[in-house]
Amino acid sequence: MKVVKNEGKKETKRTEKMKENGISETRDKSETKGKEPLFEIDPRSVYKCVQCGTCRSVCPVFDVVGWESANTRGRMLIIKSMLEGRPPSEDVLSSLASCTTCGICAVKCPAGANPPEVVEAARAQLVKCGVTTEAQDKLKAAITTSGNSFGETRNRLHWLSDTERSKLPEKSDYVYFVGCFDSYRYPEFAKKTFEVLQRFGVTLLPDEQCCASPLLRTGFRDDAEKIMEHNLEQIRKVGAHTVITGCAGCYTTLKNNYPGELRVISLPEFLAEHLEELNLKRLDLTVTYHDPCHLGRHNKVYDPPREVIQAICTLKEMKNIKENSRCCGGGGGVRIGYPDISLKLAKKRIEDVPEGVDYIVTSCPLCVRNLRDAAEDIEVIDIVELVAMALE
């Protein structure tokens, strides 16, 4: 199947429709940067795709956008065409940048392809060619200049008092990696998490920066390497062999992109391991649980958060769970780049919530943010908030 650019009225209608759904056409910057670098992606990872179309039935972005270029098969065909000599273009950029990298396509692929890895590699190639969106550039600038994805200038540990900061252990086997979201958007999550972890001798990094997940997901690999090296130096100074994090994006990055010398565990895993020591009380609540893509599908962490929840209250599962869980729409740079699509995906996920629950519980601050934007009649909370209720 040859991927070609639609012409005439078809292309005009297509562009208008994509704009309606939040996919904007962006000028190919490589036109002003001289000769483009060679487009290098392992062809074996691309040619695993046999174009069967299974992914079309599960791709969340295709579900709300409807264009072939906005589903996994379309993206894989576009990347294949670039391997065969097609230059990067506006259509290529908008197609690849709108993928949430949720990974449900990889779970369902009968040929064993891993499209999120291919898409991320292709994005990195587009960055080398100078082809990026304004949203990507803005995100990169924020992280590389301020050390966080929001461009915040406040101290990353502002949620602690000066006295509390002065008492932090300089050395520990365990360190809590807070992440950008909990540091600056949900400091109450950070404080509650650290209050629990302090019981076990966990400390904080003196100069934590963004884990680099946003840079890696959007193609800025060289910039990501510098940020990761900074964090690694911090972890080594503390002497920690185990890193604990409450953010699914930080978790998958620390676990899969940092050197294997570290033991990386998610907050739900740590909590599940220490349930007896926490002595949590039972609450008269019924909740449902949303599996974050980068904690669940990408890393198979399904049972620990459910063990924690069931130790506290009644769990009533959503319609689609675990490997079949719908993406909240916040990942892969889609929330910042295509907010309309992101919100539509979150609303689709809310449709899976069963009746008669008091809260939607999740274990990722980005999922909390996106689902809260979409949920009208039910409160969305982080798992650490549920734990804090059971500790009071």
Rank of each mutant, 00 (worst) to 15 (best):
R14I: 11
S45T: 09
K33Y: 04
P43H: 03
T15E: 15
V50K: 04
R27W: 08
P37H: 00
K17C: 05
T32C: 09
E20V: 11
S45W: 12
E16G: 08
P43G: 01
E40H: 05
R14W: 10
K33H: 07
P37M: 03
D28R: 10
S45F: 14
E36A: 13
V50Q: 01
E31M: 11
V46M: 02
P43N: 06
I23P: 01
P43W: 02
D42T: 00
G34W: 03
K33F: 02
C49R: 02
M18A: 14
G22F: 05
S45I: 12
T32Y: 12
L38Y: 06
R44K: 07
E40N: 13
E20A: 15
E31R: 11
C49E: 00
G34A: 11
K13I: 13
Y47G: 03
S30D: 06
K19I: 14
G34T: 03
K33D: 08
K33M: 15
K29G: 13
T26E: 13
I23Y: 08
S30V: 09
I41W: 03
T26C: 07
T32Q: 07
S24H: 08
T15A: 15
K19F: 14
Y47N: 10
K48W: 01
E31I: 06
R44Y: 07
R44E: 12
G34P: 02
S45L: 15
R14N: 10
E20M: 15
I41V: 12
E25D: 09
E36S: 14
E36Q: 06
R14K: 14
Y47C: 02
K13P: 04
L38T: 11
R44M: 07
E31F: 11
E25C: 07
Y47E: 08
K13S: 12
G22E: 04
E20H: 06
E31C: 03
S24T: 09
R27T: 09
S30G: 15
K48C: 00
K33V: 00
D28I: 00
P37D: 01
E36N: 04
F39T: 00
E36W: 07
E20R: 11
K13G: 12
F39Q: 02
V46C: 01
K19G: 04
V50H: 00
K19Q: 11
T26N: 09
R14D: 10
M18Y: 04
E40P: 00
K13H: 07
R14Q: 11
E20C: 09
K17A: 14
D28N: 13
Y47R: 08
G22S: 05
S24R: 08
V46F: 02
C49M: 05
C49D: 00
K48Y: 05
K13D: 15
G22Q: 01
I41D: 03
P37N: 02
R27Q: 11
V50I: 15
G34L: 07
I23V: 09
K17T: 04
K17Y: 06
E31N: 10
I23E: 07
R44G: 00
S30F: 10
E25H: 08
I23F: 14
L38I: 13
E16K: 07
M18Q: 10
C49V: 01
V50R: 02
R14V: 10
T15R: 12
E31G: 02
K29E: 15
K29Q: 12
E16L: 15
